[in-house]
Design a protein around this nucleic acid. Sequence first.
DNA 1: CTGAAAGCGCTAACAT
DNA 2: ATGTTAGCGCTTTCAG
Lengths: 360, 360
Amino acid sequence: MSEATIGDVARRAGVSATTVSRFLAGQSVRAADTIRAAVEELDYRPSPVARSLRSGRTRSIALVVPDVTNPFFAAVVKGAEAVARQDDYNLCLYNTDENVDREVSVLADLVGRVDGLILAPTVESDEAPLRAHQAGLPVVFLDREIGGSPMFDAVLVDNAGGSRRAAEHLLDLGHRRIAIVNGTKHSTPGRQRREGFLETLKSRGVEPPEAYQELGDFREESGYQSVMRLLALEHPPTAIYVTNNLMTVGALRALHDIGVRVPDQVSLVGFDDLQLAALLQPPLTVVDRPMEEQGALAMRLLLGRLHETQDSAPRRIVLETKLLVRGSTAPPRDPAPIAATRNATAATRHPFHTSHRRPT
Amino acid sequence: MSEATIGDVARRAGVSATTVSRFLAGQSVRAADTIRAAVEELDYRPSPVARSLRSGRTRSIALVVPDVTNPFFAAVVKGAEAVARQDDYNLCLYNTDENVDREVSVLADLVGRVDGLILAPTVESDEAPLRAHQAGLPVVFLDREIGGSPMFDAVLVDNAGGSRRAAEHLLDLGHRRIAIVNGTKHSTPGRQRREGFLETLKSRGVEPPEAYQELGDFREESGYQSVMRLLALEHPPTAIYVTNNLMTVGALRALHDIGVRVPDQVSLVGFDDLQLAALLQPPLTVVDRPMEEQGALAMRLLLGRLHETQDSAPRRIVLETKLLVRGSTAPPRDPAPIAATRNATAATRHPFHTSHRRPT
DNA sequence: CTGAAAGCGCTAACAT
DNA sequence: ATGTTAGCGCTTTCAG
């Protein structure tokens, strides 16, 4: 027994459905009290579906993320959901598993199901969001964008800046043999974190060889494999920058399995904080950023867009990062004088060039 | 330009809307090719909302969890979403933040928006799910139940068994001064983990005093505060069982802040594994269980229910736990002979009774 | 202030 | 095999 309709209420209150509808819309109506009573007695709730059909709105927002079990995206979901519910929207969550095909198929079925879309696209070359947008679906990019998309709203993070901070930190400690474990090559964070890091190194005269530039996929296993390869090199790096949290977990596992001491033998910097990062031995140095806020902001941006009467210019919000220096980074092992000798000989054997730091 | 309707397709194909509808439903139709072409050219997609209004189904499932940022629930979401999408259902996610009011208000608005509900209720006394069920919404309980709910489907975990394993492990190591950090008192896992643990201790003659039974709320901060209190006791426990992952994180932080060595000074067992648990120093001993599976099973149960023609008896699935013994547990510090002396004097000063292990 | 009528897009009866 | 009609529940003209 459920399903009282507006007609039932109208009959009971002795008015027309129209009047009930007006009452529900807050207009002043003579039979207000009678109607209110009828609504209560029947426990009437307007059918959201019928309303949607009439209005063309669903009051639902789709949030499409690569992986909810990534603590960053879990936080994003939490932030976005909280804002959505404040405005009485509900959140449809889709997990793409960093899989472009899945993402494409999800987006293709979204028009008509939701009023808007918050998307963390897997690759920058994805065209599915364009189609969704053309089909009239407002899109906000989250954390990641697609290529040349200044026409879209986006909530991003200063990946390059965060990576710069990480790079400077390692350089300042005296590292020169610095490696990076990159994420998905053609995703925004993958590219920006890589570029921000390498450019900063370069500006200080350090250019990691190919072997020091690992290509991961933002998942734990690739972090593990990457670090395994790095440490198997004849001349392993003295510092490693791992460009996301899950790969950092893998990296830690690898270091642990090999028995490499951090930071004595190798320094480690991660991107994105982890719940236990501060409790590790040593506590992990990471590039941190607001997480729930990022989700909340994206949702706010989108809802604002929906309530807008005429569309204005796309908005881009770029959040700042913060380097949390903890214990996993330290000066490279070789002290200066010895290092000088060693590096001199090493340089002749090595495929990579390590110039001296420029005076700044 | 979007929004081609079935009428548009019909007109273009020179047939009636009904025929197009039949074609879409897979019935054999003379103008099949023409219609197919029209569908393609117009990029026609049936309106989900209109279909819902007609059919009374939404093809949406609500998943209501206390906290998505809890890695356990994040995994559950992932598992549930994957199964849902296989069957072309979408997932509406709601986060209650362990807040009963929020849960009640969410559930109240669910009828008509979704076809079914997977719920991890905050407290066992919650009646909102009953109302939802009476309103015709199939409900599957996940991880937690409400009081006396054998009429509902549920996917649970053997909390008591897991706690028994934890208790036996600590007892076998020789611990007697054993504390527990409980979760929300009236939630299923909160109660069962507590009871399973305490009963096992009791069966072996150990009965922790009140001061050794901390009441947390499944969140990190309460784990921190609880352990702080436990270690401030005149006679702190030699072992602590923390009944969920988030509180375990808090517990670790507390131990770290105070500078207590694990497992030398105190042994620690957590419930639910953490990504970094194995990498901590010492690696954490935990009660582990399937996580994504739990979400996937709940979704399968629910979808099965929806496709069922006539309702059958409620199904309950109880998953098994596994104790992962790692490094955070060890025999209590005091070796036997010294302990004997110490305990003897301690016993006179102590408010709690520690009997000798019964021969079993 | 109120009601009758029409229609959002789709599909199930009921004819043919 | 196909079309006509009607209606899912709601809101919005349009007339009073």
